[in-house]
């Protein structure tokens, strides 16, 4: 039970949703797994919630090597995990990460768009999407725009969405085979927020070996570390280079202390985990 009154709307078309969202105090909701929690705690007091999950246009999924993967904002995480084998096959790091979001029950409701829209620095789905150069199609009464995911977040719980705008779909380019790992450190082994999450994706591992890295829970927003990627590009994965790579990752972080962990531990893990992942995926053999 939520302690205050608000209106609930269930539009079935985008046009209808735009109208409803133009009202002051109206917010879009999708799986409501974050929103209900916040409303219950009175951290969020909307006048109206506009439930977008009944809009058919937002429920699609497609994949082809040219356009990559595109899916609507109403697609749930479990649908991506269970109904679309392309996710696991072509975006393994993203697949690993969304499997680590909440509980099975949560993933039947939660959407990637919701995870992005909630804009928590701890969002597990985001770091891998950053490494895959994901983009968002954002729509409103005024039209549509494409925003690079890396440009979307502006702070904890903050993003570039304006009143009346909604995330329509997530576009993830296909750049060839990828391997990698989403390493989530958390207090317990399941159903926890990350103390730190590191997505390391290697595009075309046998060819150009493009290493990309993004992190959760180490900065005010999910963080992709281009500087480290630039450093390691076309360099051999020697002890020296890998350690320097990890150092660059680490120095780009600005973690804080909270109930899940201290800034010191997060900072240390921002160095340790990139090396550990490179070793675990078999690209780096050295053991210190």
């Amino acid at each position: 039970m939520i302690a205050f009154d608000f209106a609930y709307h269930k539009p079935t078309s985008l046009q209808e949703a735009f109208e409803l969202l133009s009202e002051e105090g109206a917010i879009p909701i999708m799986g409501s797994t974050d929103v209900v929690v916040k409303m219950r705690a009175r951290r969020l007091r909307p006048k109206a919630v506009v439930d977008l999950k009944f809009i058919d246009e937002l429920k699609f999924f497609k994949f082809n090597p040219e356009e990559g993967m595109v899916f609507g904002s109403a697609v749930t995480m479990n649908e991506l995990i269970e109904d679309h084998p392309e996710v696991k096959e072509h975006y393994p790091v993203f697949y690993q990460a969304i499997k680590k979001v909440g509980a099975y029950q949560t993933r039947n409701r939660a959407t990637v768009a919701g995870n992005i829209g909630n804009s928590s620095p701890a969002a597990d789905s985001v770091p891998p999407l950053l490494t895959y150069n994901a983009k968002l199609k954002i729509v409103s009464k005024e039209g549509e725009r494409i925003v690079e995911l890396k440009d979307f977040f502006t702070g904890p719980g903050k993003n570039v969405l304006k009143q009346g705008e909604i995330i329509h779909s997530i576009i993830v380019p296909y750049e060839g085979k990828s391997i990698g790992m989403y390493y989530k450190l958390s207090r317990i082994k399941a159903v926890d927020l990350s103390t730190i999450g590191v997505a390391l994706t290697v595009i075309d591992p046998e060819g150009k070996r493009d290493i990309r890295i993004a992190l959760a829970s180490v900065a005010p927003t999910p963080l992709r570390v281009f500087e480290a990627e630039d450093f390691i590009r076309s360099k051999e994965l020697t002890k020296e280079n890998v350690e320097e790579f990890a150092k660059i990752v680490q120095k780009n972080t600005s973690p804080i202390t909270d109930a899940r962990g201290t800034k010191e531990y997060r900072y240390e893990m921002a160095y340790v985990l990139p090396i550990k992942i490179l070793r675990e995926i078999g690209l780096y053999k050295e053991v210190n």
Binding site: I188, K189, A190, A259, R260
Partner: peptide
């Protein structure tokens, strides 16, 4: 391994829900 009631430096409790006070799950 992990359970603990935590307070911030001013004595305000920061583990007052199952989001922040974790219990062993079947995965643990």
């Amino acid at each position: 391994l992990f359970e603990q009631i935590k307070y911030d430096e001013k004595g305000n409790p920061i583990t007052i829900s199952f989001t922040d006070y974790k219990l062993p799950t079947i995965a643990d």
